[in-house]
Simulated scan of single mutants.
Amino acid sequence: MSAVITSRETHLVELVDTEGTAIGELSVADAHQSPGRLHRAFSVLLMDSQGRLLLQQRATAKTRFPGRWANTACGHPAPGEKLVTAAARRLAEEVGLTGVDLTEVGAFTYRADDPASGRVEHEYDHVLLGIIEPTAYRPKIDPAEVAALRWVEPSTLWVGLNEHPEQYAPWLPGVTRLALP
């Protein structure tokens, strides 16, 4: 299956070294071509006061890992853009949520080949955690980005990640390890 280039694929990402230091810029599409170029990304994971996590199922039109369950929102900051600013923008774009306080809880590096598209994720991924209450949240998902949302207990998520890893985005285990106390 060949991936469709969207306008988001023409945006610039910040190439980084293994320590997360910026070393250049490249388009999203080019950074994800095999063998993949290490670049800055972020993953937002929202939790409620009972400890449940809000997951999104990636839209089937996504160029990388379509249809898989992932953290609440994710993306790439523009070169030099503040992580919290970029993460807040993607939360609003993907799931229609604004005004969430986000805290960076760490970063990790991963590399994953997408067998469906032939694209490669090689990211220095900053993980941001936010706490919300589901009763105060009315999702407005962008169907080009998100197919579905669901709240899940961490223990249920870990079982799914271990028993059916092909149903989840390959970065989700690393995101979850950093986000949960």
Score class of each variant (00 low, 15 high):
80 G>L: 11
87 A>W: 02
63 T>A: 15
140 K>Y: 10
133 E>F: 06
121 E>Q: 07
17 D>C: 09
17 D>F: 07
91 L>F: 00
127 V>R: 08
107 A>H: 14
69 W>Q: 01
117 S>W: 07
63 T>G: 15
96 G>C: 02
100 V>W: 00
28 V>K: 07
65 F>W: 09
90 R>L: 06
82 K>N: 09
1 M>H: 14
83 L>R: 05
57 Q>A: 12
2 S>N: 11
36 G>I: 13
76 H>D: 06
31 A>P: 09
90 R>G: 02
101 D>F: 13
21 T>D: 09
142 D>W: 06
8 R>E: 15
89 R>C: 07
133 E>I: 07
105 V>M: 13
109 T>S: 04
117 S>P: 05
134 P>M: 05
97 L>F: 06
92 A>P: 04
16 V>K: 02
12 L>T: 09
107 A>R: 13
135 T>C: 08
76 H>I: 04
114 D>M: 02
9 E>K: 04
97 L>G: 04
27 S>G: 08
89 R>I: 12
95 V>G: 00
4 V>M: 15
57 Q>G: 12
32 H>Y: 12
51 G>V: 00
80 G>Q: 10
87 A>I: 01
92 A>K: 01
49 S>Y: 12
128 L>G: 02
39 H>E: 12
130 G>L: 04
91 L>Q: 00
91 L>H: 00
36 G>V: 08
100 V>N: 01
97 L>Q: 06
50 Q>Y: 10
11 H>A: 14
67 G>L: 11
23 I>A: 07
107 A>N: 12
9 E>F: 05
130 G>V: 02
77 P>Q: 03
27 S>W: 12
60 T>C: 12
28 V>I: 10
51 G>W: 00
12 L>K: 09
132 I>D: 09
85 T>V: 02
63 T>Q: 12
44 V>R: 05
28 V>P: 01
5 I>G: 05
130 G>M: 04
13 V>W: 00
85 T>P: 01
127 V>S: 11
111 R>F: 00
134 P>D: 05
63 T>R: 11
105 V>E: 13
21 T>K: 13
83 L>I: 01
43 S>N: 14
35 P>Y: 04
128 L>F: 10
123 E>F: 05
18 T>L: 14
96 G>F: 01
52 R>I: 09
129 L>R: 08
95 V>W: 00
125 D>Q: 15
60 T>I: 10
36 G>Q: 03
32 H>M: 12
3 A>E: 06
5 I>D: 07
37 R>L: 15
142 D>A: 12
114 D>F: 03
119 R>L: 15
138 R>M: 10
110 Y>K: 03
18 T>Q: 14
75 G>V: 01
119 R>W: 12
73 A>M: 02
61 A>D: 10
97 L>K: 02
119 R>N: 14
19 E>C: 10
107 A>V: 10
25 E>S: 11
83 L>C: 04
99 G>Q: 09
126 H>M: 02
87 A>G: 00
64 R>D: 11
6 T>R: 15
108 F>R: 11
43 S>P: 07
75 G>Y: 08
40 R>V: 06
32 H>G: 04
22 A>M: 11
101 D>M: 14
138 R>I: 13
23 I>E: 12
25 E>R: 12
47 M>A: 10
30 D>W: 07
45 L>F: 10
80 G>W: 10
40 R>N: 06
62 K>M: 15
10 T>F: 04
49 S>C: 10
